[in-house]
Amino acid sequence: MTPPGLRERKKARTRAAIREHAMRLFDEQGYAATTVDQIAEAADVSQSTFFRYFPTKEDVVLADDLDPLFVQAVRDQPADLHPIEAIKRGIRQVFAAVSEEQRRQERRRQRLIQSVPELRARSLHQYAAAVDLLATVVAERAGVPADDFPARVLAGAVIGSLLATLPRGVDEPALDHDEFSSMERALDLLRAGLPLGRR
């Protein structure tokens, strides 16, 4: 993979700075009380620059930077793997590459989503997009059309099983080893046909 050029690195730094200042302000004064103007000023960017990176204030929190990495990791798995095994290996590959700082940021992000009703509500709408994204990759690997119904059903089942492993409260950790183990167990159960009583 070609390393990112100077322009891409600058864009990534700007995006990261906007998000970090936003999260700091959310922690200090609350999500509702923080404005886009305040975030832009703290990050030393214009309001128009803010909106180039994040369409809304909500997107600063809801945008998941790991999604593109996960999709590529699944896409790169051997073609003969069962789709659920390819997904499991993709998750493992991304998880192994996540730094401790990224884990800390993800824990902050998940806690905020769980604690702010409008963020929690909008995050539910993102699950449909996640199904679309995963179904496209599953279909691509199987050599079937992107709108293939079985591919969409499998993607929906995978997303649902992964959602079932998410922390149930704002004080529970996210993206730690135990959660990753739960994700693997959920996918194993799904592949086995969801036998009840299996742990």
Rank of each mutant, 00 (worst) to 15 (best):
L154R: 13
E179I: 15
L154V: 07
S181L: 14
P173E: 02
L190Y: 05
V158M: 07
M183K: 12
P167R: 10
P173D: 03
G160I: 01
I159H: 09
L194T: 01
P173T: 04
A164P: 05
L175G: 05
L154G: 04
L194N: 07
S182P: 00
V170F: 05
D188A: 11
G197K: 06
A192V: 04
S181I: 08
L189I: 00
D176P: 13
L162K: 08
D178F: 11
D188F: 01
P195R: 10
M183Y: 08
S161K: 06
R198W: 10
A192K: 13
F180R: 02
L162S: 04
G169T: 15
L196I: 07
D178N: 04
I159L: 06
G193N: 05
G197E: 03
E179C: 07
L194F: 05
L196V: 11
V153S: 05
G193P: 07
R191C: 00
L166E: 13
D188L: 09
D176S: 07
D176Q: 09
L166Y: 15
E172Q: 15
A186M: 13
A157S: 15
R185P: 01
I159P: 06
I159W: 03
L190S: 02
E184P: 01
M183A: 14
G193E: 03
D176Y: 10
L190F: 02
E172S: 11
A164H: 12
L190C: 03
E179Y: 11
L190T: 02
R185K: 12
L187C: 05
F180W: 05
P167T: 13
A157Q: 15
T165E: 04
A174F: 15
L175I: 09
L154H: 07
V153Q: 12
A164E: 06
E172Y: 09
L187G: 03
A157I: 00
G160D: 02
P173V: 03
I159F: 03
R198I: 00
S181T: 14
S161N: 04
R191N: 00
L166A: 15
L189D: 02
L154K: 14
A157P: 01
R198Y: 02
A155C: 09
T165K: 04
V153F: 08
A155L: 08
L196H: 08
V170P: 15
P173I: 03
L162I: 12
G156Y: 06
L154Q: 13
G156D: 02
D188E: 13
L154M: 12
E184I: 09
R191Q: 08
D171T: 15
S181F: 09
V158G: 09
L189T: 02
V158Q: 05
G160Y: 02
R185Y: 15
L163H: 11
V170C: 08
A186I: 11
L154P: 05
E172C: 05
R185M: 11
G160A: 01
L194S: 02
G193K: 08
T165S: 08
R198E: 06
L163C: 10
S161M: 14
A192S: 14
G197H: 06
A157L: 13
D188C: 00
L163Y: 10
H177F: 10
L187Q: 01
A164Y: 12
E179G: 12
L194I: 00
E184Y: 01
F180H: 13
L194M: 09
P195I: 07
D178T: 14
I159N: 09
S181C: 09
D171I: 02
L163S: 08
